[in-house]
Design a protein around this nucleic acid. Structure first.
Length: 152
DNA sequence: GCCAACGTTGGC
DNA sequence: GCCAACGTTGGC
């Protein structure tokens, strides 16, 4: 069992979209960065994932979801209608992966980016590194619990 | 809306 | 394989 963090714009798919249908399963697709994809591919069923809201009013970690299906070829890459379409990808030679996620819980309050940046324990987390654009990243057990400790 | 930092592309 | 040009990310 491992811990992760994914970035998302809440206007696209935020923690409230998960909370709306707690039984529902949301495919995490559209990842188009190789390093992020490689991390996606390592996710296992049962892993916990922080949902981080970016490019919005309240930037920070908003909740927790869980991996319910490990990596499979991202269908949006084959769909010419999709904004995530990748013409260089074919079902025989697919480039991109998706996983399925399900709501776990919202944090009692959002942990803002400022606060995360102020935690010395998180200095190795790409999220708080200047200029880092990585949208899927591993979180160590230690980091995970430090972050959760800020949520009360 | 601005713009710095970054990842990717493609000519050479 | 280098690197300039470009498009994108994402905080501010």
């Amino acid at each position: 069992m491992a811990y992760w963090l994914v970035k998302t714009e809440p206007s696209e798919c935020g923690i409230d979209d998960f909370a709306k249908t707690p039984e529902g399963v949301i495919p995490w697709d559209g990842v188009r960065n190789y390093q992020a994809r490689n991390f996606l591919a390592k996710m296992q069923e049962g892993d916990y994932v922080f949902i981080y809201h970016s490019s919005c009013k309240h930037i920070g970690i908003a909740g927790v979801v869980r991996v319910v299906k490990s990596a499979y070829p991202d269908p949006t890459q084959f769909d010419p209608e999709s904004p995530y379409h990748d013409p260089k990808s074919t079902p025989e030679k697919s480039r991109w992966q998706a996983v399925d996620m399900q709501f776990e819980r919202k944090l009692p309050r959002l942990i803002p980016l400022d606060q995360l940046k102020a935690m010395p324990e998180l200095c190795d987390l790409p999220l708080v590194r200047k200029g880092s654009r990585l949208s899927v990243m591993p979180v160590s057990n230690r980091e995970w619990h430090h972050i959760l400790g800020q949520a009360d």
